[in-house]
């Protein structure tokens, strides 16, 4: 597809998601209290959008991933939360 066709197909959807992101960050700013590690992880991942290569989705996912390589001793719970937090 041409760039024009991609824009025709996805621009409105991407625009809507972009405004949602902006509104989410505004909402977080307006709220009170301390943010946990997820906000910093989110802001760091946002920086990946400025990259010049068409690998931004991969870069965002990598940015939010646990980069360690060794299995851990025990499961802290069953779920995942979407951002990695260095605990030790």
């Amino acid at each position: 597809m041409t760039r024009q066709q991609i824009l025709d197909l996805y621009f409105m959807d991407a625009r809507s998601k972009l405004i949602d992101l902006a509104a989410f960050l505004d909402r977080v700013d307006r709220a009170e209290g301390e943010a946990d590690f997820r906000l910093a992880a989110f802001r760091a991942a946002l920086q990946e959008l400025h990259g010049g290569e068409p690998q931004r989705a991969k870069a965002v996912l990598l940015s939010l991933s646990d980069p360690t390589t060794e299995p851990i001793a025990a499961a802290p719970g069953k779920g995942a939360i979407g951002a990695w937090h260095q605990t030790h």
């Binding site: 996912l61 991933s65 646990d66 980069p67 360690t68 390589t69 779920g79 995942a80 979407g82």
Partner: peptide, 13 residues
């Protein structure tokens, strides 16, 4: 493969 932040490491393992 694991969810979210655990997927990369889990997939490699």
């Amino acid at each position: 493969t694991p969810h979210l932040e655990d997927k990369l490491k889990g997939t490699r393992l």
